[in-house]
């Protein structure tokens, strides 16, 4: 594979790259902030409606069972850890280890999505809790977790592209902003799930 391209390449990283990387990093962080506001708005809506004085959980809805969700959350958090080590290994030039950690992240991400599908299936067909038919619980739960699941899906696609690009030798030890951005995004998705897990299953 493209291990050769990971040789130290002094001189290839020019001033233009350093400055544009700084701009892209800043822009990407601002994008994450505004995405965070999007989630916060829906979280605010959920907490607001939950506390609007009609009792919780609403009639006809059971409290969510935490057992499976706990396992599924750990799967996603684990993928955050593998992604972290993927980036670390890339930084220090261990290309193959980077690839394996990246693939592990993708597998864990897909596992999480499968777990979400299982959970949805259980809720919709097992307990008859639906998006439109279960009042504010269904509205906020399916909207927020659905948005999050969509973000995970986008992240999985992004990481798959990263695998292909890395195999083609796009990233070198000096120029790997795409991997940094992917790591930032994946951590962001994880952290959003920490909040969603807490407010839906633990609160």
């Amino acid at each position: 594979m493209a291990v050769a391209s990971l040789a130290p390449d002094a001189g290839e990283v020019d001033q233009l790259y350093i400055e544009t990387r700084e701009l892209r990093l800043q822009g990407f962080l601002f994008f994450l902030i505004s995405d965070c506001v999007l989630f916060s708005s829906f979280i605010f809506a959920y907490l607001y409606m939950r506390n609007s004085g009609q009792g919780w959980p609403p009639p006809g809805v059971q409290r969510l069972d935490v057992a499976f969700a706990a396992w599924n959350s750990v799967v996603l958090f684990g993928s955050g850890a593998t992604m972290h080590y993927a980036l670390e290994n890339f930084k220090y030039g261990h290309f193959m280890r980077y690839m394996w950690f990246l693939l592990a992240t993708i597998v864990l991400g897909v596992m999480f999505l499968g777990g979400q599908a299982y959970e949805y299936n259980h809720l919709i067909f097992g307990e008859h809790v639906t998006w439109a038919g279960s009042g504010i619980f269904g509205a906020s739960f399916f909207t927020l977790t659905g948005m999050h699941g969509f973000h995970v899906f986008i992240g999985v696609c992004y990481l798959t592209v990263l695998v292909l690009q890395s195999a083609a030798g796009v990233y070198t030890r000096g120029k790997y902003f795409g991997i940094t951005a992917g790591t930032l995004y994946w951590h962001f998705v994880d952290v959003i799930w920490v909040v969603l897990f807490s407010i839906f299953y633990l609160l």
Binding site: L29, S73, F77, V194
Partner: peptide
Amino acid sequence: VENQVFKLMLLLLGIGAILALLAGLNVVGF
């Protein structure tokens, strides 16, 4: 900048893992 963000994210990730662990032990959650 990105490493500061990574540190924050890792902290939250660890907290999330502990929460899931406690949920598994039936300390929190339902």
